[in-house]
Design a protein around this nucleic acid. Structure first.
Lengths: 133, 133
DNA sequence: CTTGAGCTTCCAGTGACTGGAACCTTTATA
DNA sequence: TATAAAGGTTCCAGTCACTGGAAGCTCAAG
């Protein structure tokens, strides 16, 4: 039997997060007579599952779906794959966006001499200067 | 003289966002007798500046600082550059994290046959299978 | 018997908006 | 002139996934 402190240590999840996961119904740990949460191996397992899914960037709702699929022995792997592919596409979208930001920003940073004078291509660009770098 | 609708259209920012920017003190549009906001060219300019800074991923607080620097003719370009470099580093960190997620997820997606059978390497990995792909 | 660690709940805050309700103003039309 | 539509206003609540903090209970050690 393990209390929340143990579980937090073993899963690497903050206690607050574990309580939150219970609150939104992702896990349902039992309670001891003193009111403390009492985590079984299956709870540990679920939390570890959640930790890994979150680390891959799945949303909480995706995690809920994934847990459901995991526990459903009649699932079709196509469902899981579709969810993962959707998430992958979302990640790609975000990477593209960040790389586009990065490119512009890196150009601006390079163009800025960064000394004690006020002249600054970064501000010029932000202010709408057409002749920006 | 322009009302919020005009300004929203000209800057591409939602009206809600423009009101929000006023609420948090990024802009201070005047008011007409009827209570409507009345935007001057300088407000338009600031909003466009904010739109571009936000598009580069700067936080609202960074934007506030950038606007302050923009309006301060005695600024040192080094201050702007430092801010931008910090943001650039943050973007790089995010890109790295997303690319790491992407790599793992792409492997899993490739490994999953995605048919009507329940067997699924994605779930196996999330559940802590040591022999994951 | 007190101290400290560990657990509990509940409330508030984060960032940057976004949606919606309820209401006011202006303009166009029947 | 009545009214309806289009535009503006404020205020409150919700998003997402936690996180911090306060107040209070339980338990083991000294």
């Amino acid at each position: 039997m393990s209390t929340i402190g143990d579980v937090a240590e073993r899963t690497g999840l903050p206690q607050k997060t574990i309580r939150y996961y219970e609150e939104i119904g992702l896990i349902r740990p039992a309670r001891s007579a003193n009111g403390y949460r009492h985590f079984r191996e299956s709870d540990l397992h679920k939390l570890a599952f959640l930790g890994r899914a979150r680390a891959l960037g799945f949303s909480i709702e995706d995690c809920r779906t994934l847990l459901g699929l995991y526990e459903d022995n009649t699932r079709e792997s196509a469902s899981v794959k579709a969810l993962a592919e959707g998430h992958l596409a979302e990640i790609d979208r975000k990477i593209d966006q960040l790389q586009s930001m990065r490119a512009t920003l890196a150009d601006l940073v390079t163009a800025c001499h960064g000394d004690d004078r006020p002249d600054c291509p970064i501000l010029a660009d932000l202010s709408g200067d057409e002749d920006a770098p």
